[in-house]
Amino acid sequence: MSQTQSNASRMDGPGYSRRSFLRNGVAMAGGMAAFVAALRPLAELGEGALPSMDEFLQKHYKEMNEQEMQAALARIEAKVKERWDVDAEVRDVRPRDGVEFVYALNLSRCIGCRKCVHACVAENNQSRAPEIQYIRVLEMPTGTLDIEQGDHDYDHPTVPDAGHYYMPIQCHQCADPPCTKVCPVEATWTEDDGITVVDYDWCIGCRYCEAACPYFARRFNFAEPEIAAEELNTQMSYLSNRPRSKGVMEKCTFCLHRTREGRQPACLEVCPVGARQFGNVRDPESSVSQILETKRVFVLKEDVGTLPRFFYYFDERYPRSGETAVEEG
């Protein structure tokens, strides 16, 4: 290093006065101060907002062994207790062997009452504010199957409304799902019984799956989900209805915490007109197998090639009866 060079970089070199140094230093300090101050909102991060070391190191669902899964479930139960002061039971419910689920929906029966929508919200601990609903009921004008002509916001005094039929749409648990293809971290995949699931602790929130889904089935938590303690369903499972955090995806899971134990999904049980049928398509005696055999079923957007597990059909023999004098329900 030559002498002139070292002079240039030495602070007491000829080109450097004390005033200059102070001014530089103050400007730098100002810059640093402004930088740190810009991060002020981070001071308001809630306690659970940043992951704990255990959560940070938690593995993908498929890679966790029994012990790690139990630890994860215990963590979730503890968090529920801390946040809502409620004792929850969180399990890891596995698929049954020899079972592949299929859902069938009779469009001649659905009256558009939206009970399924809200039963699902209650069962799956979805955020009430901002609102998340997995099921979307479309009011379709008769004469068309073009779902772009559906009305999502219908609000008649009573349903069904004349000249319309109703089509509830939720995740179809496709056999060739575009959403699982596009996830960069494999946070969503198809299980052996056909249900497409999301590992809420693995999702990075890029929303590529939401862009890929042709059925508007996936939902994103844009804010921290808000549920009241008395609204919480305490029977939870890791892959379905345990509480989610902001920044992750979620969707209908065919109530796998119920259906994998033989029970019916919540939307089916609440339907007042019996429009929904659910079961194991590998069992030829099941209602869904019978429907696929005997009814003229179709799927939405068949041309996209997703192979949905959700089949729609009409089986009207005569138009639905209209208004009546006797009020019920």
Partner: peptide, 13 residues
């Protein structure tokens, strides 16, 4: 990203 703290998941899976 919704969860930038999980960026390392890109390396793990």
């Amino acid at each position: 990203m919704g969860r930038p703290d999980r960026m390392l998941h890109l390396f793990e899976r």
